[in-house]
């Protein structure tokens, strides 16, 4: 996002800075800012040089070095833990899966397993071959966690290891999980998987601090699940599976903004319109789980 600074953006930034200058009352330093790159903040202290950074609303802004002081954030386990449980404020993430476009390329599964340290039989997202009895044809259906608004898995968890964030994402804290597997038993979508043995490449990930949003490193004896790639969302990127798809199956976005972006074509469309015009549906709505993943029906053949 930071690299792609195009003309209209630059204009709005200038405008922003101009306002800043005229009012002069707003001290950027006061509003705790997270540096996109903290290096700039530390190295160059000469007045007059500008730094680029993201403000609270994830907008890119530029300001004079003298006006800002760096907020040092230590990326340690405590920070990752707190961040993982909080979620991104003001967002409601949503996924739309266009079944008519799925050709079973399985790039999504591969990207997901690679990112999340999963064995080949462990699926955060699983592309199923479904049989449509009405049309006597089969179609492919990618099935990630549905990130239900009424998640049965979260209700039954005895230790609050799996939880629903305010941005709609259902995550799991594998440092809290006791491995009772009640969530696996309770999930009607079979979306969860368990680390029955030592996870793949456990040695390699030994010293990596645990990132709840990525759920890596995986731990033996704990449950793992699709996280809507919460770590990527925080960076303003699309989930691993969404950007890996070569066929434009996935749309991902924010329900509050009513916008979703196709992971392949990068085309952004109105969520409500997309759902309405394409006879969207959710999986087993009769169960009352209220999924956050919508499906557009497969093509009739």
């Amino acid at each position: 996002m930071a690299e792609k600074s195009n003309a209209p953006r630059r204009k709005s930034r200038r405008e922003f800075l101009r306002k800043l200058g005229t009012t002069g009352a707003v001290s950027i330093a006061g509003t705790s800012l997270l540096f996109a790159g903290s290096k700039t903040g530390n190295s160059d202290k000469t007045p007059g040089s500008k730094v680029k950074m993201l403000d609270q609303n994830n907008r890119l802004v530029e300001a004079d070095v003298s006006q800002v002081s760096p907020v040092s954030v230590k990326i340690d386990a405590g920070y990752l833990n707190k961040k993982g449980r909080k979620g991104l404020p003001g967002r409601k993430f949503v996924m739309v899966v266009d079944l008519a476009r799925c050709r079973n390329a399985r790039k999504c599964m591969k990207a997901c397993q690679g990112a999340h340290q999963l064995r080949p039989e462990q699926h955060h997202i699983n592309v199923l071959e479904m049989y449509d009895e009405e049309n006597g044809a089969s179609y492919f259906m990618p099935k990630p966690c549905q990130h239900c608004d009424n998640p049965n898995c979260v209700t039954v968890c005895p230790v609050d290891a799996t939880f629903k964030r305010e941005d709609g994402i259902v995550l799991i804290d594998n440092e809290r999980c006791i491995g009772c597997r009640f969530c696996i038993a309770a999930c009607p979508y079979s979306a969860r998987t368990f680390n029955w043995a030592e996870p793949k490449d456990a040695e390699k990930y030994k010293d990596v601090p645990y990132d709840m949003e990525l759920n890596v490193p995986q731990k033996k004896g704990t449950v793992t699940k699709c996280a809507f790639s919460a770590d990527r969302l925080r960076e303003g990127k699309l989930p691993y599976c969404v950007s890996a798809c070569p066929n434009g199956v996935y749309y991902f976005g924010d329900e509050n903004e009513d916008l979703v972006t196709n992971g392949t074509t990068r085309e952004t469309v109105r969520l409500s319109k997309l759902l309405k015009q394409n006879a969207s549906y959710t999986l087993m709505p009769e169960l009352g789980t209220k999924p956050r993943v919508y499906y557009l029906p497969p093509r009739r053949s």
Partner: peptide
């Protein structure tokens, strides 16, 4: 899966479960 975390039931027990 993690009998070593039995104490979590007391530390983080959730009444809904």
């Amino acid at each position: 899966g993690r009998p070593d975390r039995l104490q979590h039931l007391v530390m983080y027990g959730r009444i809904q479960s």
